[in-house]
């Protein structure tokens, strides 16, 4: 019975996306996709050529991948921690908490293209080293994005408790801290993963986008821009593919972590 369930999960979670991806790849390689979209192999290069470019430029690509990962993962971790902290504060002070989180939700709605140049200017005084202050500016943008999403979801996890559970614990004479530790914290774990499912792919996207505006010329996103402007579409697509792979790998890591940590829970 159990093995059957796992198999079914595997089919829906892994097999279907892989088949879908393979179909897209085949359509591209056989140029059927080009006919459907009315484009040509110059604007949308063949997958074989893209892979060729990636394999030829691995050292250069890795430098850019590293720069993007530092920004994205750094922003993700700091943002998630800050977001959770904000949710805790909002829970401890319930009178203003919910309203305060609405403001955090508003932050979530600010487009990256708007805050990226602002943070660039704000961080100019931080350091005389452009690569460092540029990295800080980019990380801040990702942080803001991740923080907003995490705080809203974590707040729900900390407060949307099973009915009467708080009353029950109070009847056992449990203090607020005990309620937090025994009830709220475990209850919020699945909600953390709900937030992470949005922020993990999102942190790569926001990292890539804010590299467009960054002062220091580095990163996968910057390479995409430079190559498109100079009409090097095949190379640009190579970097787009790299960005996709980064996002997918991060998401797979998240799914594995979720499976391990939430074992025995209903997700």
């Amino acid at each position: 019975m159990k093995t059957k369930k796992i198999n079914k999960n595997m089919v829906t979670n892994i097999l279907y996306p892989v088949i879908f991806g393979a179909i897209i790849l085949i359509l591209c390689q056989t140029q059927i996709m080009h006919k459907i979209l009315g484009t040509d192999v110059f604007t949308l290069p063949l997958p074989s050529r893209i892979i060729e470019i990636i394999s030829e430029n691995i050292p250069k690509i890795m430098v850019n991948v590293k720069a993007t990962l530092i920004v994205s993962v750094g922003g993700l971790i700091i943002g998630s921690l800050l977001g959770y902290l904000l949710a805790i504060i909002a829970t401890v002070f319930p009178k203003g908490g919910a309203g305060g989180l609405s403001v955090a939700a508003a932050f979530n709605a600010i487009p990256i293209v708007v805050i990226a140049p602002i943070f660039n200017n704000l961080t100019k005084g931080i350091s005389s080293d452009a690569s460092f202050r540029s990295m800080i500016a980019k990380t801040l943008v990702v942080t803001v994005f991740c923080m907003a999403s995490m705080s809203i979801n974590a707040y729900r996890g900390l407060n949307e408790l099973p009915p009467f559970s708080v009353d029950l614990l109070k009847s056992y004479a449990a203090g607020n801290f005990t309620i937090f530790k025994k009830l709220r914290l475990p209850n919020s774990i699945p909600y953390i993963f709900i937030a992470l499912r949005v922020t993990v792919p999102g942190c790569i996207i926001s990292g890539v986008v804010c590299e467009y505006f960054a002062e220091y010329v580095i990163g996968v996103g910057r390479q995409i821009r430079e190559n498109i402007v100079t009409a090097q579409y095949a190379t640009a697509w190579a970097y787009i593919t790299v960005a996709c792979i980064m996002g997918i790998i991060m998401y797979i890591i998240l799914l594995i972590a979720e499976n391990v940590l939430l074992k025995g829970r209903k997700s």
Partner: peptide, 18 residues
Amino acid sequence: RFKEFGALLTAVMMVCFT
């Protein structure tokens, strides 16, 4: 009502701070 007022006040304050 007091709760609502508190929420509103905090929201306004946070906006002001930002």
